[in-house]
Structures are given as C-alpha cells and as structure tokens.
C-alpha cells in the first residue's frame, strides 16, 4: 500500500496510510503513516468498537497536517485487549490459503447475487 500511496502523493494529493506492520510500511516509505498496534486484519480498529475506530480515523486524517516530514510514522495509543497476540503473530507458519484465480465469494448467496447482476462471468472471472 505504501507504493500506491507514493504514486498518489507524487500525483499531487496528500496521503496518509494506516498500518499495523511497522517495518513493511517503513520500508515502502510513504509520505505519512499512522500505526495501530493490533494483529493483522484490524488496521483501522478493534471490532465493534466505534469509539476507538473513530479515534483512529481522526488521528489518520489529522496526520495530514500534523506530520511535517516525509516518512514519518506515528503510533496511536490504543492497545489490543489480549497481549498474547504477538506470540501468535511471530510463529513461523504460513497462514496463506491457496491463491485461486477465480472470484472467491464469502458465500454462495454472494456468488448467486453477482451472477444475477453481472452474468455467468461473475463465477469464473473470465
């Protein structure tokens, strides 16, 4: 995402990235970033926590004016409730599922709705 941010910034629009992967973002080196110290899959907040999600979104947009040097990453103070998440995140396992090259729907009902709207191509992605 840092690469896309750099291109948008280079085109003239100021950008800010949220990130929960400090080193990946630091390496891609976008203009501005705000760090959330959560397990992957929750970059913009804890689930069912609208107050915390609003704080994070606010910190992100305010960083547009608040960050004054490119490459700066600022953390938000929120913490994940269960501190053991780091142990799981550091396990040397490959969590990825097979990278299938057809559209992957969350449910069969989603597939059916997409076919109804877009035709049979919605099933094969062709």
């Amino acid at each position: 995402m840092g690469l896309i941010a750099r291109e948008i910034e280079a085109s003239g629009i100021p950008t800010v990235c949220l990130t929960s992967a400090w080193t990946i973002t630091a390496s891609a080196n976008p203009a501005r970033a705000v760090y959330t110290d959560f397990p992957l899959g929750h970059t913009s907040g804890r689930p069912n926590d609208p107050v915390g999600q609003l704080e994070i979104a606010r910190a992100a947009v305010e960083a547009i004016h608040g960050i004054t040097a490119p490459g700066t990453i600022i953390p938000v103070p929120q913490q994940w409730p269960d501190p053991t998440w780091r142990d799981e995140a550091r396990e040397l396992v490959d969590h990825r599922t097979e990278r299938l090259d057809t559209p992957q729907y969350q449910s069969d009902a989603d597939r059916d709705a997409a076919i109804a709207t877009h035709g049979e191509n919605a099933a094969c992605g062709c």
Binding site: M1, G2, I4, A5, I8, S11, G12, I13, P14, T15, V16, C17, L18, T19, A21, T25, P30, L40, G41, T43, S44, A57, A60, V61, I64
Partner: peptide
C-alpha cells in the same frame, strides 16, 4: 480515480 473523485486527501488502509 482519486483525481476524478476530486479528493483533497487520500486515506489508505492496508491489511
């Protein structure tokens, strides 16, 4: 699309 949408700021959220 960011320009066509007339955006002043882009917020990017990776996973």
């Amino acid at each position: 699309r960011c320009h066509e949408l007339d955006a002043d700021i882009a917020l990017l959220v990776p996973v």
